[in-house]
Design a protein around this nucleic acid. Structure first.
Lengths: 258, 258
DNA sequence: CGTAAGTTTGACTTACATCAAGTTTTGTGG
DNA sequence: CCACAAAACTTGATGTAAGTCAAACTTACG
């Protein structure tokens, strides 16, 4: 059943259409300005359309469940999500797997491969999606000539590293309810940054995937959603989440001394 | 009591003595060759003495418990440990703190600041130690001119990111005994890589610090050390650890299906 | 529209935390 | 260098948050 979908999306890789990026031909975009080439707000994504063009970015469509890259595959590109979302999954020594990240439109995927020859995790589309493919060698070359691109690149790495660090902190110190609160607030912030509602969004991950990301079992995730719903913190209707009391959610995270 | 020790170590920052690095003046070190400038094996540390010299590295001594950098401090340098060891600590929203890393001789500290203007954690010496201070702006400049230094830098970032990712995986999927086994095997590997015994080493962290790093309480760490000691996996005598059966330790980590 | 995948909820179990008391180790000042 | 105090560690008894197992219910996709 997935095969058909994959076929339908196939052959959709195309070179960037230069005509589409005609509008902003200046070397700099103002903060908050929309980059038509990749649908990214420039204050969020440090790589402007001029860079994407010059770097020879291509596009790639992914059907839900399709894999963008796998562990062991040579690292040649990083990706920005034009539309849709994806998760990354790592495999532990034994067969188990853990969701290590969740990316939405405008975010960078595949950065974990930098500095090594190969990717370390699997990236899977959570819904039909489209990504920009940025050849890393070219990006690096440009960064060498233009220090501001270098800094932008570092910023992309730093964002990824900061995310991983905060997950580490969450897994090491928080209880289940706090983890879920932190997860929702993180999503809220990221949706907001990208111009979507910060209080109402659709989860693309299953309870099991959320649990895997948070170091919890799916039943625990479900129970805590129900419990938050009952206490009026959030409204949860299957995958649709409405944050009713973001302040109280934030309070949950901070109000545990010891 | 600590103040006196700090005073004793003060005023010990000095510019690199060029005379000390006289030996290898070639542009490349062979794998495994010792870098006299920083006591690092070149196959372990990607930055050779020539680079350290050129980058204007200085040295700094730290007394046990002394802080190398604090959260919020401007990020200007990264550090390599010449001797001793240190931990990094992050503060959660509320007052609690978590140990986020543990570095030994030859490893890079402070990399988490890359891409941001400031450091995100506190680095504290676990024993009297000495570090190389590498001004990052200079390093970046050199990397721009020399692609191979760029790659080395990326490799340093990647090593740090990989470590964080594996901690994330550990915290998300492993039980207490497995975490401790993974911790010991990680230390074992790193000591081995740097030319020390892989089966016998002295822990510089307390049980509480180990617990903080592993997301466990100090009592749990203690109990599991005792239990591993009883079953003959390791010999634990206070801070001195001898790995008696590394294979069985590895087995602990992998032999949990589901 | 039917089926498979995903979700919720309950009953029970367990791994780790907490609390507490006693012991060992470490570091410091006499 | 020894003695003493503080810090670190060990071990036991008990509590609890989250996991496990199971069954019924809901959602969504082909």
């Amino acid at each position: 059943m997935e095969a058909a979908a994959v076929r339908a999306w196939q052959g959709s890789r195309e070179r960037f259409d230069a005509g589409r990026t005609a509008a902003p031909r200046r070397s700099e975009l103002g903060a908050g300005e929309v980059c038509t080439a990749c649908n990214l707000r420039h204050d969020v994504s440090p790589l402007c359309p001029r860079v994407l063009e010059e770097v020879g970015a291509t596009r790639r469509r992914l059907a839900r469940g399709e894999t963008l890259f796998r562990p062991g595959e040579p690292f040649v590109s990083i990706y920005t999500i034009r539309s849709g979302s994806c998760k990354t999954v790592m495999l532990t020594g034994d067969g188990r797997e853990q969701v290590t990240a969740y990316y939405i439109r405008g975010e960078f995927v595949g950065v974990e491969g930098v500095g090594t020859a190969v990717h370390r995790c699997e990236a899977v589309a959570l819904e039909d999606s489209e990504v920009c493919v940025l050849p890393f060698a070219r990006l690096e070359e440009m960064a060498r000539a233009q220090p501001q691109i270098q800094r932008s690149l570092y910023r992309v790495f730093a964002t990824e590293a900061a995310r991983e660090r905060s997950v580490m902190l969450m897994l090491g110190t928080m209880r289940a309810e706090q983890r879920l609160a932190a997860f929702l607030l993180d999503l809220s912030r990221r949706y907001h940054e990208r111009g979507y509602s910060s209080t109402e969004f659709v989860l693309r991950m299953t309870r099991e995937e959320i649990g895997s990301y948070l170091g919890l079992k799916l039943e625990t995730v479900s129970r805590i959603f129900s419990q938050m719903h009952r206490s009026g913190l959030v409204h949860v209707q299957s995958r649709l989440v409405k944050l009713r009391d973001p302040l109280a959610l934030r309070g949950l995270i901070q109000a545990t001394f010891q």
